[in-house]
């Protein structure tokens, strides 16, 4: 009979999938959110409305439901077209990217609005074209303003990856379930998993603090 400690390496390796899925979802979401926030700020009423609908839909849907719909929806689609199915990891990445992207879009929009208008005017006043003002002035300032909220969002996303276990991604929580099934000691298995999540979160928090203090200069 194995104890939970025997399974620790197996369990700990689960964090790799969690962080990989969380990290890549976060990057996809941030990129999507940034682009949509910029489009939103420079476009007409109709496009603005579409983006507002996107944000409110995904703010309302539970992440678990989105991920299930994406997974089974993608299978229905690929079977009907006759192409290979999306892997659970890819389906989870797609679902998280799109859903978390709506949160990121809101964060970036708020940050964009918080950039003092005068700083953009100063760029116009030296004759910079619009795209350069975005690249050189608006986006760097926006990222600085958005950094604290984005840091919290990354932590949330890494925790959220636990629900990808519902479609069979064997990340940390899924592995804890498997281990508890084998050892009949759910408390120990889930306890270790919790400790691993805490450790990762602590590391990311320290990293974020460092970044923020470095930036203040």
């Amino acid at each position: 009979m194995f104890t939970t400690t025997d399974y620790l390496p197996y369990l700990a390796q689960g964090i790799i999938a969690s962080v990989a899925l969380g990290g890549s979802s976060f990057v996809a979401a941030a990129a999507l959110g940034l682009v949509l926030a910029l489009i939103r700020d420079h476009s007409s009423g109709f496009v603005k409305l579409l983006i507002a609908i996107y944000i409110s839909v995904f703010r309302a849907l539970p992440e678990l439901l989105t991920i299930l719909l994406t997974y089974y929806g993608s299978i229905a689609f690929t079977r009907s077209v006759g192409i290979p199915d999306l892997s659970p990891f890819a389906a989870a990445l797609l679902a998280f990217g799109v859903q978390i992207g709506s949160y990121a879009c809101q964060i970036f929009s708020d940050a964009y609005r918080a950039v003092p208008r005068g700083l953009l005017e100063a760029a116009h006043a030296v004759g910079m074209p619009g795209y350069l003002i975005n690249v050189r002035i608006a986006i760097p300032l926006m990222l600085r303003l958005a950094a604290p909220s984005l840091g919290s969002l990354l932590l949330v996303v890494i925790k959220l990856t636990a629900i990808a276990s519902a479609i069979g991604v064997t990340e940390l929580t899924r592995r804890a379930q498997i281990v508890s099934g084998a050892t009949h000691d759910p408390l120990a298995a889930f306890g270790y998993a919790a400790a691993i999540y805490l450790a990762v979160s602590a590391i990311l928090t320290i990293f974020q603090r460092r970044l923020e203090t470095a930036k203040q200069l």
């Binding site: 700083l119 005017e121 004759g127 300032l141």
Partner: peptide
């Protein structure tokens, strides 16, 4: 016209009340 507008702004320097230096 965008080009022409930028040309105008390039030829006219502006100093603002609140400085508007880029903080980064």
């Amino acid at each position: 016209s965008k080009q022409k507008l930028r040309q105008l702004r390039r030829e006219v320097g502006m100093v603002f009340q609140s400085f508007n230096l880029w903080p980064h």
